[in-house]
Design a protein around this nucleic acid. Structure first.
Length: 805
RNA sequence: GCGGGUAUGGUGGAAUUGGCAGACACGCGGGAUUUAGGUUCCCGUGGGCGACCGUGCAGGUUCAAAUCCUGUUACCCGCACCA
């Protein structure tokens, strides 16, 4: 009989609203557990079926922790600043704050319908001035410590809209909205010095319980490389500084390449005989993003600077200088020494432009045919005077020492990580609390003037000069200098969305505090986050940014731990039917509201967990949802049948212990799909042999974190005391989970031939005798002798045979 | 291009981490119940008549490979102003 999920779910959600079973208690004597999910961006489309996957997963984890006696903090909030809301506001002439409020209400309704055990008294909203007051406060601390600074950076500039575009708004080099070409334009921007923390962000990963691919991806993103900085002299007398990881190949440097934006190119322009070509190349490079520049690099492009050359400091040879877009201004010094014999990109470039290829490391193929790039002891230096005969590993320190002695180079560590561009010329973000005074320069807003509230504006459109819409608010912009009291102007750029999400987990600990971002008591009690689950796509930006901010807050004594998150796991995406990404244009988007209306929240929760390996992408299937509904109907029918007997029945005892073990372990390892499969197996057992009330009790406790509404209803229906969710998590007895007899596979020469049943943990001799006694095996043994036997305890026996002579 | 992943029946996925491939579901076939459809309950279900063959593809290591190694193809995530 199908159960009335609509009535049951409404009933229990009402009960939870009143009883507040999910309230976290700061300072409680129970051990604490802080489970965190990435808070959603409240988009106008409402919740996507992708959201409930991580939410349900952590809901299950935290519900189990509560039953195991933990004081659980499982909060929710909204990361509500950002581009889509702003664009919606521009289009519809509605204040983004109103749009945000409406969207948050819709998200809240949907989240409550799914029965998540969030502590609803701790909701945070990044666009609330009482929240972003502290985002601004953290910025001021960064500024005071010299970690926030202004620098000129290239931005995407739409030549028609006359505004700065986000990378996402640039599609194949043109503006997403109007289709006009987009160029790179220099703009003064606020920057955060995350590079100052590069080494610590790598080193401290070692102590964290993050899944390996997250650690690897972060390390590669930070991209530490060791090498040397070498100064080349140009024929003009200028110094050209390069970074290289292969100083040992210095004798093989046959040309140099500067990025098209390199300052020296501008300086040399009047002297260049081919200045027009150079300018044309610079303009072409300006229209490409870094990604396109490196992607298109299959076919290398560049221009040789005619009229200037460089001198290789080790051998005094004059070598040509090129500009090419495969050298990025943002990495290293924006200039390289090119060693075509031992670098693939340089080799390709040299082949195209006819540069000389000089072998300096022997041991590979002919360097005229391919670059030899091994950086270990397989290569030996040649054509390199005092380095000849050394291996690459020996030559690197030798040449580095030589360079240092001559004063033309030094050992250098370089990171791919770049400082964080923190300015946005947009309205819907936190105002940056800085003031520009002609006399005193940039001055921070005094802390007692925070929050610096985002003023209302008439239009949210970016201005023609590329400034934020705030720049038109002259009343707001014109202010007095906090330092000298003279006339001054406010910064009109706002912060990126990453700002609010870099510290939100701290605010959850004490969300209503108006004296500090959170009290010391709350921070000491709840830190660190015990388990943070989120998407892989956030690994290199959000996750790294928030680790950076946290380390900074630790350094200034605000937070008690060096790292924000003790453990990090990651979920896969939910794809639409057919295995494609869900999107409006494909028309394969599944709305959780529809699923809940048709099958109920518990079925939705069960299915999204049963769909497949939590860490991998999974394909939505409407049909498979029904299977989970059927399972809940079957459990319901067992309860409705009115089981009797408070004790566990002997015929189900072993199965119950095994199921408790499997479900307990699987939840800890996020293998929710197999946990549910184990419960299904148990229910199939219950259909073969009727369960007692005591058997059902165990099943309901195991089911409760997954399907809390129906579990609670059946708990009450069977007359158990209190609430299922507040009982102790069931324990299992290991000795009762093991089987008394085992069925072993019998292989002959590695191929399965039969099976035998023997007592558990039987010794080798017993197993081999049993195998030989088996009819099929006995036949296979005729005329053969056993050369070798392999017994794997409780698993299999493998007999290796050969014909008797 | 660079960095990180993934690939198993008709479908979603299991596989104690080198030890009986396909648990649990969906779908499909058969049966029971039902006036009928649906629901529910039972049984069967990788391929091949068979010796056997089967975990993207090609090799290798091993008594034994979905799992380890080498090469290769396809797809997914990220690439710094989307969140």
């Amino acid at each position: 009989m199908a159960y009335d999920f609509a009535r049951i779910e409404k009933k229990w959600q009402g009960v939870w609203e009143k009883e507040k079973p999910y309230a976290a208690v700061t300072g409680d004597k129970r051990p604490k557990f802080y489970g965190l999910i990435e808070f959603p961006y409240p988009s106008g489309q409402g919740l996507h079926v992708g959201h409930p996957r991580p939410f349900t997963a952590m809901d299950i984890v935290t519900r189990k922790k509560r039953m195991q006696g933990y004081n659980v903090l499982f909060p929710i909030g909204f990361d509500a600043f950002g581009l889509p809301t702003e664009n919606y506001a521009i289009k519809n002439h509605i204040h983004p704050a109103i749009v945000t409020k409406k969207n948050i209400e819709n998200f809240t309704r949907q989240l409550k319908m799914l029965g998540f055990g969030f502590d609803w008294d701790r909701v945070v909203d990044t666009t609330d001035p009482t929240y972003y007051k502290w985002t601004q406060w953290i910025f001021l601390q960064l500024w005071k410590k010299g970690l926030a600074y202004k620098a000129t950076m290239p931005v995407n500039w739409c030549t028609s809209c006359k505004c700065v575009l986000a990378n996402e708004e640039v599609v194949e080099g043109v503006c997403e909205r109007c289709g006009s070409p987009v160029v790179q334009k220099e703009k003064s921007q606020w920057m955060l010095r995350i590079t100052a923390y590069a080494q610590r962000l790598i080193d401290d990963l070692d102590d964290l319980d993050f899944i390996e691919r997250v650690k690897i991806q972060q390390k590669n993103w930070i991209g530490r490389s060791t090498g040397a900085e070498v100064t080349f002299k140009a024929t003009t007398g200028d110094d050209i500084v390069v970074f290289t990881t292969r100083p040992d190949t210095l004798f093989g440097a046959t040309y140099m390449v500067l990025s098209p934006e390199h300052a020296l190119v501008k300086k040399w322009m009047p002297k260049l005989k081919n200045a027009d070509d150079v300018r044309a190349y610079q303009a072409a490079a300006a229209s490409k993003s870094d990604l396109e520049r490196t992607e298109l690099s299959k076919e290398k492009t560049g221009v040789c600077l005619d009229g200037v050359a460089a001198v290789n400091p080790v051998n005094g040879r004059e070598i040509p200088i090129f500009i090419s877009d495969y050298v990025l201004a943002s990495y290293g010094t924006g200039a390289i020494m090119a060693v075509p014999a031992h670098d693939d990109r340089d080799w390709e470039f040299a082949k195209k432009f006819g540069c000389e290829i000089v072998e300096v490391v022997a041991g590979g193929e002919d360097v005229q045919k391919a670059a030899f790039t091994a950086k270990d002891d397989t290569g030996v230096l040649v054509n390199s005077e005092f380095l000849n005969g050394l291996t690459v590993r020996q030559a690197i320190p030798a040449i580095t020492k030589w360079l240092e002695e001559k004063g033309i180079g030094k050992a250098q560590v370089n990171y791919k990580l770049r400082d964080w561009v923190f300015s946005r010329q947009r309205y819907w973000g936190e105002p940056i609390p800085m003031v520009w005074c002609e006399k005193c320069g940039w001055q921070p807003l005094p802390e007692d003037q925070l929050p610096l509230v985002l003023p209302d504006v008439e239009s949210y459109e970016p201005t023609d000069d590329g400034e934020s819409p705030l720049s038109k608010m002259t009343d707001w912009v014109n202010t007095t200098c906090p330092c000298c009291g003279g006339p001054a102007r406010r910064e009109t750029d706002t912060m990126p969305q990453w700002a609010g999400s870099s510290w939100y987990f701290l605010r959850y600990m004490d969300p209503h505090n108006d004296k500090a971002l959170a009290s010391k008591e709350a921070l000491d009690y709840w830190s660190p986050v015990d388990w943070y689950n989120g998407g892989m796509e956030h690994t290199t930006l959000h996750l790294l940014y928030s680790r950076f901010w946290h380390k900074f807050l630790y350094d200034i004594g605000v937070v008690p731990t060096r790292e924000p998150y003790a453990k990090r796991t990651s979920h896969g995406m939910i794809l639409g039917e057919g295995g494609e990404k869900m999107s409006k244009s494909r028309g394969n988007v599944v709305n959780p509201d529809d699923i809940i209306a048709q099958y109920g929240a518990d079925t939705m929760r069960m299915y999204i967990m049963f769909i497949g390996d939590f860490e991998k992408a999974a394909t939505w299937s409407d049909n498979a949802v029904k299977g989970c509904k059927k399972f809940l109907d079957r459990v319901w029918a067992l309860a409705e049948a009115g089981p009797t007997g408070d004790d566990v029945t002997p015929e189900h005892e072993a199965a119950l212990h095994r199921t408790i073990k499997k479900v307990s372990e699987d939840i800890d390892e996020m293998k929710f799909n197999t946990a549910i499969a184990a419960m299904m197996t148990l229910v199939n057992e219950f259909y073969k042999s009727k369960p007692s009330k005591g058997d059902m009790k165990v099943l309901l406790l195991l089911l409760s974190p997954f399907a809390p509404h129906i579990a609670e209803e059946m708990w009450e229906m069977l007359g158990f005391e209190g609430r299922a969710m507040s009982q102790s998590w069931p324990e299992y007895d290991e000795s009762k989970t093991v089987e008394q007899v085992k069925e072993l596979a019998v292989q002959v020469n590695g191929k399965l031939r039969s099976t035998v049943t023997v007592p558990a943990d039987a010794d080798d001799e017993t197993v081999i005798d049993a195998a030989k006694a088996d009819g099929k095996i006995a036949r296979a043994l005729e005329g053969m002798e056993i050369v070798k036997t392999i017994v794997v305890k409780n698993r299999l026996v493998n007999l290796i045979l050969k014909p008797k002579k």
